[in-house]
Design a protein around this nucleic acid. Structure first.
Lengths: 226, 226
DNA sequence: TCAAAAGTGTTTGGGTTACACCCATGG
DNA sequence: CCATGGGTGTAACCCAAACACTTTTGA
């Protein structure tokens, strides 16, 4: 055919969905898994808490990962290493701003210390909210509570199977510290002995020869990845 | 800026990505897992094999799932029950037809018999290709080989953990038939005894009282879901 | 010497694999 | 009666949970 349904030059004439990135940024705050939310100061959902997000800018972003990084930089004034795609949602009634809205959702787990988001462009108050609270909060904007549920579930499943988020961890750490973080993410206690056996059966860590973590009590061997 | 980056009325002025749906339709053909590919008869990638796909039409589709169904209907002339989101990919250099292309990828596992796709609108020759062959074929269009790899991996993982694709199975079946299908999907033999024990420990099936599958040899009990 | 955290060993049990074996039927 | 697929039982194994125990340190 002359132009075809598959990809005519005219295809660009079809109106396209309003395409956004949303970020589910998780961390361990106050002994539990938490998600970073911002308060919306504009319609729609004005005054409600929501995941940070932004429009995909085809003039600025090389690809989806790039777009997510730019959104993180603009909204939170930080880089997010190791962002991972969570899901995509879209439809007619998602967002009153446009007749059809599409959201690509990324998730990240970031070290709470050393991660200092500041409300950036168009960004309002930021707040860490315990995930289980946010996931159950029906007052979050859009379907963000559902997205938080998904991000938390995937992240916890990874930790449970010892697919550890090394980008989230400090470079070196004691086994006690590591176990504490995993327990905080999972929200349940782990058995020390089992935890350690699994770690070295999976060959995940190696001790850092000289170093010891010296605290109030007996010093602990320090480990690093691999 | 005057109106804000988050959601000014002017936001609609940003050019949006060219948003498409791609379908990874899997089935068991000839004793192995296969994926449905169509030959492209237009640029780009003319002459190469590719996943069936189509543009998201905000005037026709209520949401993403709807869009996927419409694409299936238009391209393959069939409905695809139980489509599931696989992933999203997008970027500048993905598709020469537009400066920035986004693809939402769905996967489905369909019964080979009772599933009769016919090349529809703008659709050319269709062909079932063994997944492992397609996944390794560097000549597939776009990044579709990678998408096939993903779809196969997820599907196999589900079957391996006995998360059975009941929409793919006939309504009733003998255990031998079921095991055969699982083996075909996984590409490796399963132990009969273990397979059956796992099935009834997980309480997945129930026998259909009177019915027996009568074949060349000893008749087999017929089962159904739950 | 005691509290607290580091670190080790041993037992138990769930779930899966591997394999051996019997049963029923059509040819 | 035997080849073939249906169907069952058992032992071994892997992995992780549970828990008891020793060690080392600062206060």
């Amino acid at each position: 055919m002359t132009s075809g349904t598959e990809n005519p030059p005219a295809a660009r004439a079809y109106p396209m969905p309003f395409a956004r990135i949303e970020l589910a940024v998780l961390s361990v705050v106050g002994g539990g898994l938490a998600v970073l939310l911002g308060k919306r100061e504009e319609a729609p959902h004005k005054g409600k808490w929501a995941l940070p997000g932004g429009v995909i800018r085809i003039d600025l972003d090389e690809d989806l990962g790039d777009a997510a990084q730019r959104v993180a930089t603009e909204r939170l004034r930080v880089r997010l290493p190791f962002l991972r795609l969570l899901t995509a949602v879209g439809g007619r009634s998602r967002d009153p701003r446009s007749p059809w809205a599409l959201a690509i959702v990324y998730r990240a787990l970031v070290p709470f210390e050393s991660f200092d988001p500041k409300a950036g462009k168009r960004m309002e108050t930021l707040r860490w909210v315990p995930v289980d609270e946010a996931a159950a909060d029906t007052r979050l904007a859009f379907d963000h509570a559902e997205l938080v549920r998904g991000a938390a579930a995937v992240t916890r499943a990874e930790v449970a199977r010892l697919d550890l988020p090394f980008d989230f961890l400090p470079h070196t750490f004691s086994l006690g510290e590591l176990q504490g973080l995993c327990e905080a993410i999972l929200g349940r206690p782990l058995d020390k002995s089992s935890f350690r056996r699994r770690l070295d059966e999976h060959r995940l860590l190696e001790p850092v020869p000289g170093e010891m973590r010296t605290g109030a009590f007996r010093p602990a061997q320090v480990y690093r990845k691999r």
